[in-house]
Design a protein around this nucleic acid. Sequence first.
DNA 1: AATCCGGGGAC
DNA 2: GTCCCAGGATT
Length: 331
Amino acid sequence: MSKTFSAKLLKWFDKHGRKDLPWQHPRSAYFVWLSEIMLQQTQVVTVIPYFQRFIERFPDVNSLAQASEDEVLRYWAGLGYYSRARNLHKAAQKIMLEFQGEFPRDLAGWQSLPGVGRSTAGAIIAQAFGEFGVILDGNVKRVLRRFYATHEADEQLWPLATKLTPQKSIIDYSQAIMDLGAMVCTRSKPKCMLCPLNQECSAYQTETVQNYPAKKQRKALPEKEKYFLLMINEKNEILLERQPSPGIWGGLWSLPSVDDLQQFPQQALEKLPSFTHTFTHFKLTLKPVKIRVSTSLQISETLPQAWILLKDLSKYALPTPIKVFLCANDL
DNA sequence: AATCCGGGGAC
DNA sequence: GTCCCAGGATT
């Protein structure tokens, strides 16, 4: 049934597949796991430099487990979805303490680790151990929806993905199905003429490729606005606060933010140009305010705080828009 | 089943 | 500007 599908895909992979990604050499369980987490909702080209820096500092699961969460987040800062980094760190500690430093070998073992779901576990089983594992990521979903010309929900695609996955050549197949989605069966302008599966592809044969996957209707993003306090003391230090997790920018260091400025004397404030940042579920207008304060001023401490010099900014994990703002402003 | 969680690349 | 990317956790 799936024989022609995987056979044709593997033949295509031999010639056109990606075989020199950083996590493929060596293809260790640690590298595969780390790459799969970084690649969740994040494109390959974005991940590569983060992966390189990360493995240089944390070359194995033990070094990752021993590190502080704060340092792990520093190496993740800018990549987004910071719960991935927190979960990765927790998982490393679990592997060291509960699994005696040995990676799981089966699906259930991997899925017991925080941040590892069904698809990531399947990818790791396949790529790290060469055993039967099924992937259903964004690429595979798109390929399957077009191949079967179906609008079925994500969950309904698992049996199809499982049926198509071969017992042999699993390492290459799992890479091949993702490469096809990333390189040929792309979201826009798919290269159907180059596709090894076009003769069996229902969407291609009915000339309805553009209908799959269907466009989702998006709701208008809610808009929020907050004041971000650029507090500067007499030593020219600024105040950072560590954000609570879970939550936006959880675990990262950001400027203190407030909904209004009524607690501050008007003459102490200097309003700076506002800017916007769009998250997945809302649009935030950041309204920076510069406040000169005396060193002795006691700020209410609901979150961990640090007075830091601008030159030491790189020692902290900052959200990208905050980092960009601070680097663009002399104090 | 929806919603939350970032940032950026491609268009 | 829109869309969505090697998704998972939470509700």
